[in-house]
Design a protein around this nucleic acid. Sequence first.
DNA 1: GCAAAAGTGTTACGAATACACCCATGA
DNA 2: TCATGGGTGTATTCGTAACACTTTTGC
Lengths: 233, 233
Amino acid sequence: MEITSYKHTDRILVAIDCIIFGFDKEQLKLLLIKRDFEPEKGKWSLMGGFLGESESLDEAAHRILKALTGLKNIYLEQLHAFGEVNRDPVERTISVAYNALIDIEAHSFELSDDYSASWFPITQLPDVIFDHNQMITDALDRLQYKASHEAIGFELLPEKFTLPELQKLYECIYGRSLDKRNFRRRILAMDVLINTGEKEKESSKKGAFLYTFDQTEFNKLQKAGQNMDLNLY
Amino acid sequence: MEITSYKHTDRILVAIDCIIFGFDKEQLKLLLIKRDFEPEKGKWSLMGGFLGESESLDEAAHRILKALTGLKNIYLEQLHAFGEVNRDPVERTISVAYNALIDIEAHSFELSDDYSASWFPITQLPDVIFDHNQMITDALDRLQYKASHEAIGFELLPEKFTLPELQKLYECIYGRSLDKRNFRRRILAMDVLINTGEKEKESSKKGAFLYTFDQTEFNKLQKAGQNMDLNLY
DNA sequence: GCAAAAGTGTTACGAATACACCCATGA
DNA sequence: TCATGGGTGTATTCGTAACACTTTTGC
C-alpha cells in the first residue's frame, strides 16, 4: 500500500521574507514595503509572501522578488528560518528569510506599484514589523561575512563599475573606510576583474577605468579552492 | 475586527532533522537511526520529527534530540531549511536541519531503544534517505567553518580532555593532520583552556595533562570581539 | 634500556598594514 | 593654474608554517 500523507496533523504556514540590499553609489540600502494587509497594515516590512504547495523555498523567494522588482536572475541566498511561536500574532507562521542583492541603478527594472516600496539607507531604517529587525541584523552580518570571503559585492553593482565605486560599496558594507592602495591591490590580486579600457567621467575630471567582473574566471578559481579572502570585517 | 488567521490556504508540514556529531577519541561520527515508518522504513536516516503548533523550531530540535539521547543541554545550531517540492515522496514537507554536537562518552546518557540508532564514522556512512546526504555534507562544511572560527570543538569532548585528544578531534573534523607544536600554541593562545594539573595515563606512559574549557572566559573574549580564529580549514 | 607518546622554541617566509606623492583633466 | 578625484610603491610589522629533539614512565 502506498502512503500518501503522514498522520501527523500540524501543518503550518510557511512564509518567505526577502532582505533586499541595493547600492546607489553612495549608500547601502534596503528595500522595504508598506504592508498592505492586517495586522500592522501600513507599517514597514520586508517583502514577503507565503510558500505555495508546488514551489520550492528558493522558487518562492524568486517569485516574491520578481513580483516586487520584475527582476528574474537575482542573487538570492537563504539566510535562516525563523520559528518563534508568536513571531506572527495572527497565526503560527514560520518564515524562511532570504538575502537578495540587486543593482539599484539597473535601468531594466521598475518597482511594482502594488507594494508602496521604498529604499532606506541601512543606517536609517524605520521600525519594521514582527521579527524583521532581527532578520535584517542577521542579513547584514551574513552580507559582511560573504563579501569578505567571496566575490559577492559585485551583485550590487552595474555590469561596469569603477574601482572607487567598488571600494565605496565595501566601505558601506563594513561601515568603515578602507585604504585605497591596499584595497585596490587586494581586489586586483583576486584576478577576477577585467579593465574594459573605457573611462567613466561623471564623478571626476580625470575619469576612472570601468571594470567588469569575470564570472567565468571566478568560477574556475573558486572550484580550484583558491583563497579569495579580502580579510575585511 | 481582530484577525485570527490568514486567508492563504497552503499550510505545509514542517520537519526537523538533526545532524548529530559525536567523537570517540578516534573518529568523528554521526548518529543515524533506522527509520521506523514508511516510506523507506528500515533505511538509515537522520533523527527527525515534525514541528508542533506550540513549539519554536529550536524547541522542536531540542525535543527531538532529547527523545533519542535523553540529553537536554546540547549544542544545537540551525543549519538550513531544505524545501525542494519532492524531497519527501509522501507529502510536501520542508525540513529545517540542525547541527548537534555531543560527547559520545558522556556516561550520563543512553540512546533510546525506540529508534535503532547507531554511530557511523563520517568516513563510512551508509546510504541515507531523501536529501539527508546533502544535509550531512552541508553540516560537515558548517562544522569545519565553525570549528575554525569559534571554540566549538569542545562540545564534542568530555569535560576534561587532553591536548592530544583535542588535536585528534580537529584532525578528524578537517580530515588532515596538524602540526603538534603549532596546534598547541594556537589553541593555548586563545586563553580559554585551564590545565587542571591532573594527568590522564591511559593512552601513554608519560601521561598527558587534562584541560577544561573555560566557558566564562570564552564568553568574555567573544563579547570583546576577540579574534579566536584557528585558521584551519 | 627501550619503546611510546607528551611536551617544547626558533627561524624563515609571506601577508597585512601604514603611509605620501604624482597624474590627468575640466573649469 | 588650480581644484578634484584617480592612480601608484615601499618599508615595517606581524602572523603562519616548517621543522627536531628532549622528557617521562611503564614494561
